[in-house]
Design a protein around this nucleic acid. Sequence first.
DNA 1: TGTCGATATGTACGAACGTACACATGAAGG
DNA 2: CCTTCATGTGTACGTTCGTACATATCGACA
Lengths: 180, 180
Amino acid sequence: MATRRNDPDRRDRIIDAALAVIAEGGVAGTSHRRVADRAGVPLGSMTYHFTSMEELLHEAFTRFAERISERFAARLSGVTHRGQLASAIVDLVHSDLVEGPDDLVLTLELYTLAARKPSFRQITHDWMRRSRDVLEQHVDAKTAHKLDALIEGLFIHVSLDATPHGRDVTRDAVLRFLPS
Amino acid sequence: MATRRNDPDRRDRIIDAALAVIAEGGVAGTSHRRVADRAGVPLGSMTYHFTSMEELLHEAFTRFAERISERFAARLSGVTHRGQLASAIVDLVHSDLVEGPDDLVLTLELYTLAARKPSFRQITHDWMRRSRDVLEQHVDAKTAHKLDALIEGLFIHVSLDATPHGRDVTRDAVLRFLPS
DNA sequence: TGTCGATATGTACGAACGTACACATGAAGG
DNA sequence: CCTTCATGTGTACGTTCGTACATATCGACA
């Protein structure tokens, strides 16, 4: 039987195109037509592959959250002692967003959706759980909660503040939660 | 001269209606017509009072941020010693969002806008500055930065996590930044 | 009181939208 | 080779949108 038709990963490309469109114009500016154009597929493919816009958004943000989690785990893997862990977290907060400002936008778009619709909250639940799992390889559960929240806040403030704090401030804040 | 016409605070009502509509359906679901209906004014009033949707959103979020800042300052005023300050912050993180879940949605909507459009970033800049000013009545500047970010992260995680941390965890985290 | 101009409103238009659905396409099995 | 039918596409419909603009409304001043 194999492939019925010739483009098996078209669905994947639509999802990636959706993330690009969302990053560019927000969920507010995302439409079937725009995503279709970006992915290079006909409008009809949208409703064929996805029942609704909500389904597409859900799959797109699920993929996005998994990607970020992977990067998070990668940065913190191989870290053995306190100083390295702190450095890795400082890099996460201060460097990652310079590489990809899209990640900030997508993160906030997801949070906004999650704040209103329970179906999207599952995505943030899983994301936060994965983050804590990684952190718990280095610290206890309660500290993981605190650290995760701190990282979140630092990341947002570095991104949206006019006079953001420096790496030294981040490092000092993080170290307060790491047992010496 | 006085009032040219009979409804001087119509503009105000439109702004409040806009915040209600945004809280309900997000920026994505906000239109001139919906805001007009909510405010009980004709569609024509929208373009008369506001040049564009963006102008309306800008004024609405400015008002929102100022309101939150006032509440923030009020909660932290009259606090004298370390334990009281910690308690006040714990209340902010854990109670305020129960009272008004709309605040979480509006906050995230604003951040999302700010992440993409510099004109809205001014609103978050001012907001964060005001928060730090309040905190600096109790701690030094660098600590204020850390505390502000921590509060942000704790607030978001309490709101969007399936298994959020308790008040005790928040309190312990906050106390780590308050000099004993 | 009558007129004038600032203030405010109703309506209409073109663009963009989600969605439905009739139809094209081509691989699989007879 | 030919039929069949799952897979995929083009188009058209009804709705909603932002915006423009002609028109209505009424306070202020002569």
